[in-house]
Design a binder for these strands. Structure first.
Lengths: 267, 267
DNA sequence: CGTCTTAGG
DNA sequence: CCTATGACG
């Protein structure tokens, strides 16, 4: 008879989900799905409401700690992270008022990793916001580099990036070379971010699987025809790659124009 | 065998209906109801859209002539009258810019009567609008007197009066002595208007029938409990009283927070 | 509570 | 198309 001596396995199931309104998603049964899926960390974006208007008891009743980082403007943007385990530290915002008033970053630090929930700006409403987005993207790389230098635990960057890198990340790459979210500048930025030492967990797990998207326009029945984009990502610090057990997109889960992206880490 | 010599009977079925949005009401099947009810003259209030946004083909396809008098402000107020018979004359507004920009009066003249479609101001949004309403009410009596003096055909005043006169016209008269729509001032005004030579066709036909309302708040399930007010009226010039054949409220017709009020005249 | 609006996506 | 808002009722 042989005995194996090993430490206790710790699994972390992390989900990123742009809800297009937390209240709307709750009204469509979000809490029931969460009760079934049981993510350990649930990062949501576009909560579109502040603390006064939000009732997250349906989620805290499931045993989650709730951390909200709403935008200043009513009905706009905002992120929230729900965690089964109480984090060692919570950091609201990135220290830049320009971004923090828009509720775009929320970090939870755990023993084995830090989960950085982010909602990156959309550029679709015009050139002004596209310029704002590009500035944010450059800021974000510097910001992440600073976190690393400061000794924050290895990062999981979870969120709606509002951009993707490769042609197979969207249904119609040819027609969208100039569209916000797939400009050469944004694709290059994404590549640079990966070169900084991050891994796209979905691609790591699924290779070049085509037609796997996380967002579909509400218009023209895009979702039914799978005319989508992969905008929601779970990037991990390269040092976490050996811990990836699974990564996926859950297009059958429908509370929003996005679907959840999930990642299972094992420590 | 006996022969009766008599002129051809002419019936006019007139309906007044506050739609709380003509587009919304159409989306709930208004045209199907109109096709069944076949009013000769349909007076609607709160159309809440201008000509560019409205598609009334579902009604004109039923054989109606359409006359619109929208407000200037988008999504606000406005009246429209639909008539099977082409009127002899159509008068948009009352000549007062203060009221005509809010789309509150539209008159169609026929051989036997004139149908004055009116949406009287609501006072519920504050004392400023209640004062505006009271000024309107006084103006309206003078205006109607002027029409009479000018030799307009005998009037049917059809519309949402946003007020009622007697305690049996609302579910909770005691609690609403100071509420806009049932203030002593408005009740007195209503009595004065009747004293000017008008008859409330519903009361003429139904006497003191209680609990007959035309509006219910959307809040707190008021309509299911019949907690309502009778705000929509078809007043007729006293000279038309011998022609009243029927008058009613149709609470089972639901496209709005109001229900239709109807009047059958025979000439 | 519900129909409009406008902003944002 | 969809979720927010704010005005109005």
């Amino acid at each position: 008879m042989t005995f194996f001596l090993r430490r206790k396995i710790h699994q972390m199931n992390i989900v990123s989900y742009n809800l297009n309104g937390l209240r709307s998603a709750l009204s469509k049964g979000l809490a029931d799905w969460v009760a079934t899926a049981q993510p350990d960390v649930l990062c949501v974006q576009e909560i579109k409401a502040g603390r006064e208007l939000l009732d997250v008891s349906r989620l805290t009743d499931l045993g989650y700690h709730a951390y909200l980082h709403p935008a200043q403007k009513p009905g706009y943007s905002g992120v929230a992270t729900f965690s089964k385990e109480k984090p060692l530290a919570v950091t609201e915002g990135c220290g830049q008022a320009l971004y923090d008033t828009e509720g775009r970053v929320l970090r939870l630090d755990f023993a084995h990793c830090a989960v950085l929930n982010t909602y990156m700006p959309s550029g679709t409403s015009g050139p002004e916001r596209q310029a704002f987005k590009v500035e944010w993207l450059h800021f974000f790389r510097r910001y992440v580099a600073g976190l690393r230098a400061a000794g924050v635990p290895p990062l999981v960057v979870a969120g709606d990036f509002n951009c993707c890198q490769r042609e197979l990340d969207l249904h119609n790459p040819k027609a969208n070379q100039k569209s916000p979210g797939f400009t050469p500048e944004e694709r290059q930025w994404f590549q640079n971010l990966l070169a900084d030492g991050f891994t796209d967990s979905f691609r790591h797990h699924h290779g070049d699987a085509p037609q796997r998207y996380s967002w579909w326009s509400y218009r023209a029945g895009s979702r039914a025809r799978n005319v989508g984009w992969r905008l929601d990502h779970l990037l991990v610090d390269n040092c976490l790659v050996p811990h990836i057990r699974h990564a996926d997109l859950l297009p059958d889960v429908v509370h929003s124009d996005h679907c959840p992206a999930s990642l299972l880490l094992e420590f």
